[in-house]
Amino acid sequence: MSNKIIEKEYFSDKVIRFVVENQKISRSRKAGNFVILKIGEKGERFPLTIADADPVKGTITLVVQIVGVSSAKLAALEIGDCITDLVGPLGKPTDIELKGTILACGGGVGVAPLLPIVEAFKKAGNRVVSVIAARSKDLIILEDQIRKWSDEVIVMTDDGSYGRQGLITAGMEEVIQREKIDECIVIGPAIMMKFASLTTKKYSIPTQASLNSIMVDGTGMCGACRVTVGGKTRFTCVDGPEFDAHEIDFDEMLMRLGGYRAEEAVASNKYFQK
């Protein structure tokens, strides 16, 4: 298990795709699974979704957005470098079945984890309509790959620099008004998932959201990743990462994402000044 980086591609200056050697994970992963990485002796453990895998070549694909120290440390690695620690596949895989029409919604870097799910739903025989959104054109990623596995794709940008102008919920509304949706999946920033799930709740469309809580071990050992779903505390890493979006307490989730903001800001300042 070398964890060697064999491909690196910039989607934008903040979003990068890596192909990493790890034969075992490439074979055992399913759509919806994630890995935990650690870079360097003193690195922190942080989660990334497995965006794709090639069991023949023994590789997995990760797409990372630079938001702080750990994501920046990964982004600084080059082809030939090795990721110090990489463990997975973690989390419950997505429940993929023939359901009819799937509305797949991805915001920002959330399109990366959405891709394997779109592919799996399509392969299971579903009609898939995807809505992908970002603040502006240069932040729209993986559009071609999403198109490959979707019957239709709607692109939304906040500023109208590409696709249609508006929030992801506008694109979702349009599809929902037009045709019967059997299930919806949303992945993206927590705030986007909150509003996307409010939209589908209005129409009583069963919806799954894939949560990006703060994690440490990823094996159910620490409880850092806890969220309230249907009034009960659940651990995102072992009970999720996907949950019934209409039952998730998004406000609590948003609050918990800020749990280490002060410490992260200090670390960021230190790292980026160097």
């Binding site: 440490v216 071990d217 050992m221 620490c222 609050m255 749990g259």
Partner: peptide
């Protein structure tokens, strides 16, 4: 109990 600053001993000690 899910407010920030409330953690399991496992999380605290692991960190």
């Amino acid at each position: 109990e899910n407010y920030n600053g409330i953690l399991s001993s496992n999380e605290y000690l692991t960190r």
